[in-house]
């Protein structure tokens, strides 16, 4: 009888062990924050390939492609502590896998601001400064005398002041002529109280803001801006208003 009980216990222990081995970990660890990068034109979600927007210079335009780097993304808490989200993130409007970036294992805290660099700083923005992936190589800035990567490729079409002649525009930003041209962004948001739970922070880029505020960007005459520092400076100044926090929510 004793032997019988021992066998029973052995079998039960074996099955229990097998089940536990396959069981998923419980989600009761530290919290997480997801940064979601969305894009708008004048507050509305971008409609790709639709010449429906009107910029301050008077042209109607469309958005076709958009890729850009954000780097040194950090979240800051009320108590003064900070956590690094990611060193470099390449966002491609056509690639959903780049839409979000989640940082796990976030310590409990009251997070209330985010900061990042638009583009890459001088230590990263050198030839071979990023991992040699095909995606990064496609962002190279090979202009003789310069180095590094495009910070942004914002491409589309425009109707030049209603003439009906559709032209293409390329707003390609980066470091040129010895000027770095990246800029820092810091934005407060309503508190995300992380208590072993997950949150999503929507960061929005309004593409129309690249074309105004404080400078009017006129597509005409801007066909080649990669070696045009005046155009790069104009865009850098406009860049100060392109980002906003669209929402902060607990998942």
């Amino acid at each position: 009888m004793k032997k019988h009980t021992f066998l029973k216990i052995s079998i039960f222990a074996f099955i229990l062990f097998s089940v536990l081995s396959c069981k998923k970990d419980e989600d009761n660890g530290p919290g997480s924050i997801t940064i979601q990068l969305d894009h708008t034109v004048k507050g509305d979600p971008v409609e790709i390939e639709n010449i429906k927007y009107t910029c301050q210079a008077g042209h109607t335009f469309s958005v076709v492609n958009l890729k850009y780097y954000l780097s040194e993304i950090e979240l800051h808490a009320k108590d003064g502590s900070s956590i690094s989200v990611v060193d470099v993130h390449l966002r491609d409007i056509h690639d959903l896998s780049t839409e979000q970036y989640t940082v796990e294992d976030i310590p409990d805290g009251d997070y209330n601001s985010i900061s990042f660099i638009f583009g890459l700083d001088e230590t990263t923005n050198v030839d071979g400064g990023l991992e040699n992936t095909i995606e990064n190589i496609n962002m190279e800035w090979p202009i003789p005398g310069d180095q590094g990567y495009h910070y942004m490729k914002f491409e589309g079409r425009y109707d030049s002041l209603g003439t009906g002649v559709i032209r293409n525009f390329n707003i390609h930003t980066g470091a040129t002529m010895g000027n770095q041209n990246y800029f820092e962004v810091s934005m407060p948001f309503s508190e995300a109280a992380v208590r072993s739970n997950s949150w999503t922070i929507n960061v929005s880029m309004d593409l129309n803001e690249w074309l105004q505020n404080p400078n009017t960007y006129d597509f005409d005459g801007m066909e080649m801006i990669m070696m045009n520092q005046a155009a790069q400076e104009l865009l850098k100044a406009n860049g100060a208003s392109v980002f906003s926090i669209a929402s902060v929510r607990k998942n």
């Binding site: 095909i134 190589i137 190279e140 090979p142 202009i143 003789p144 390329n170 080649m224």
Partner: peptide, 25 residues
């Protein structure tokens, strides 16, 4: 020719750039 290829004068590099001379797109 290199300068034409790798600047916006020729603007070849945006599609045929990088060491592979193709963007795979």
């Amino acid at each position: 020719g290199y300068d034409i290829f790798f600047t916006e004068r020729g603007d070849c590099f945006h599609c045929h750039g990088g060491i592979l001379f193709s963007d795979n797109l």
